[in-house]
Amino acid sequence: MDAALKRRLEARFGEGLQGPVRQRHDETEIRIAPAQVPDVLRTLHDEADFHFQLLADLAGVDTGTAMQVVYHLWSTTSSDWLRVIADGLPREDPRVPSITFLWRGAEWMEREAYDMFGIIFEGNRDLRRIYMPPDYTSFPLRKDFYLPDDAARSPGGGVRHMEQPEAPLAPGKTLVRRTRA
């Protein structure tokens, strides 16, 4: 845990942060508003105090109430991973500025976040689906996207059921193949 980094972050950004700087294990976490992303990341990337040169990861998160974009950064000046969370994107129309001007390599990671969550990165010149087919309409990693097979959920709530007590199938249809004529 790098306490110096926490002090530097608080001194530099101060009011701009949403909530306190959190630290656990070897991770330092700050939360910012989506609109601040380019400024904050540019500061972290350029200024000699921080020098976060490597974008380790870019991930979208759907909390169920809001969307987040999470950046993990690496620096030579600190032994911590810095996690920058752009918090509070509305679920209906999540938009955040792209950071491809800083890291061109973020392009595909942003495409992935768009593909999986529908987060729109303004300024990314190639924001199209990357894994799913181009005519796909929904966003699979959103929390309201249920797997069709609900039985794959955890057993923690009790026994899982193969045979659900529900209306019988249409005659001649069975779930299990009958092998004997």
Partner: peptide, 26 residues
């Protein structure tokens, strides 16, 4: 399901097919 069913069949026992149907709604 299929695997277990085939295991049963290979065991030589009579396998009642209704066992593999859905049970009645209650």
């Amino acid at each position: 399901e299929r695997r277990e069913e085939s295991a049963l069949r290979r065991s030589g026992r009579p396998v009642p097919d209704p066992a593999y149907e859905r049970f009645a709604p209650i």
